[in-house]
Design a protein around this nucleic acid. Structure first.
Lengths: 331, 331
DNA sequence: AACCAAAGAGTAAACGATTACTCAAATATC
DNA sequence: GATATTTGAGTAATCGTTTACTCTTTGGTT
């Protein structure tokens, strides 16, 4: 608890060499004999010496840590991405500062100041706010974005949301739906706009006329989504035979509203969600949804960031990851 | 992207004072006039100067960062604790290294070496492995544990798992159950042992005889829990009229097994879970469960750690947080 | 044999903050 | 008015690494 930590000069004294040599041995920079290496490493292991990263960072401007800014770490979807990022960077000695922004610009700014002060080598920014257009100026270091409009940034990793929207809508059409209600996150973040695009394209391809009144805005919130659908059912003025919700939380809200009004799913009404969170798998009936490869998202983003941190100029890179339809009980 | 970061000497030059004065102004350590302060702060703000934490850490041995070791960040329960920890420490300028150990000792050790090298000021360790008995020697810094056996550590935050187990069992008894199957995580981590204690105490209090064959071991895994219950139902040799699962994931597995075998819940069979993850709320019927106050767990652990980091000797402290019964559709 | 290159290792100056000393000027105390 | 204290501020060492130089020894080339 209190014994002072051992430093390079201690090791140097014991090995009877200079700190320069210790440093060269530890960093495998050559200019030392095999015998010296052996002697040094033995002492290093014997005392469990760990280099002081603050000193190293001060000297080299590399901190071996990165920041990940995430809208909500309690959300399984983001948790999976964070985990995958961590798995990818850990073997290279990197640690990650996780910064939950709560989608609040003030908190986000605080987090960013903190980690900039701490000399992070780079940042992975997972978009969750609508207004991230000018976030870039906050950083004077490599950043990789997840789920951000590619036109606004150079290094972006994202799912093929448009194709996902298409797949979801197509599945509903193939199941016989002709009037598909689109339950949409009203913040209209970039991924949602893309999913909407896919919804339109599917209508086009199958020659099904679109109807503005079938497009309903709600929030990611379960409750509001449920109540929105409930209200529509009670008013009885809008006819629809399928629902595409732009995420699973809202899909679940819709499902429960339908069940409360004794609309049988999937017999009378089909439903498709998006994201594939475990809720959609474990509810009853399990919800057909579009699966995003969170593992790959984290891994690709992390690898791209590491490459940018290590190696000079990496060409602008926009990584689009495939999604797939996960057919379950609601279609 | 490339302009060098501004340092204290730059500020000092511009304000025409020494770095010592800048330092004193920034740390509000006295020994400077109001005029000097104003002049310095104007320049600091004008250039958006942020101190270099690596240098500061090297000199002062305080890094303003802590590590949180967590068994699985994709699990909503742990995500909530992490978020609460972050919220608590952010106003004090701290950032948190989140380390997902995957309950794997090797990975955990790697993480710990990394963050020790990075001079974290303290660690919050959320137990998830069975064998954390001798983890302490890895740290030469303040640690606060969550969900660890209090006899093994000085600073522990935990829910009142025993009372939770009691409440769950009592609820089943009051709903008329007399033969309550205990579906238990076979790793028998400390919290699970406590919940089991509560299960026993409730039987005792209500004078209901316990039956060893009603205690069934499974894993946290949804699938195995489901298949375990399925098998028992198929064998038809064991009679029971209620299930207490030591966590919600297993409770959900049990629920689906029961439904598959056309056992009506809650009419023919009652069910109670533990943790209150959103899955238990949004399945059908929603599962009665024991709610843990994750918000408080994170907050109390973080506050305790900060106190230990800042102030000399904090008396040994074992914080026990209340739980409550969340009655829903399965009882 | 004379010259040169390479290998092995040391010296000391950074990196950007903090802080124990020092010191002059201003103010307080009697 | 002489002395003591407080105030405001500077000097320089320090934290633990890395690395550009330097230097000596060894071995290779012709």
């Amino acid at each position: 608890m209190s014994e002072k930590k051992i430093s390079m000069v201690d090791i140097a004294r014991m090995a009877e060499v200079s700190t320069a040599t210790i440093s060269r041995v530890l960093n495998k920079n050559g200019r030392y004999s095999p015998e010296t290496e052996k002697r040094v490493m033995e002492i290093v292991h014997k005392y469990g010496y760990l280099p002081n990263l603050s000193a190293k960072t001060l000297r080299t401007n590399k901190s071996l840590s990165i920041g990940v800014i995430v809208p909500d770490i309690t959300n399984e979807f983001f948790g999976k991405i964070v985990r995958s990022i961590e798995n990818t960077v850990l073997p290279f000695g990197y640690s990650v500062f996780v910064c939950d922004s709560h989608e609040d610009e003030k908190i986000e700014t605080l987090h960013i100041q903190n980690i900039v002060s701490k000399n992070v080598d780079g940042v992975i920014y997972i978009a969750g706010r609508a207004d991230v257009g000018d976030i870039d100026q906050n950083f004077s270091m490599p950043v990789v974005y997840i789920d951000r409009q590619a036109e606004h940034a150079q290094f972006v990793v994202q799912s093929d949301n448009e194709y996902g929207g298409f797949l979801a809508t197509e599945q509903l059409i193939r199941s016989g739906c002709r009037r598909i209600l689109l339950l949409r996150d009203r913040r209209m973040l970039f991924p949602v706009r893309q999913r909407y695009e896919g919804y339109c394209k599917a209508h086009e391809k199958y020659g099904i006329p679109m109807d503005e009144s079938l497009i309903v805005d709600s929030t990611v919130d379960y409750t509001l989504a449920r109540d929105t659908i409930s209200m529509i059912l009670e008013e009885e003025s809008l006819f629809f035979d399928g629902v595409f919700a732009t995420n699973d939380m809202m899909a679940l809200g819709a499902l429960h509203a339908l069940q409360k009004h004794h609309v049988r799913v999937p017999e009378q009404m089909k439903l498709v969600g998006f994201d594939d969170i475990s809720l959609s798998e474990f509810c009853n009936p399990p919800i057909t949804t579009i699966t995003q490869d969170t593992e790959a998202m984290g891994q690709r983003a992390a690898r791209l960031l590491l490459k940018r941190i290590q190696g000079g100029s990496v060409p602008s890179n926009n990584i689009m990851l495939p999604v797939f339809l996960n057919k379950r009980g609601t279609t």
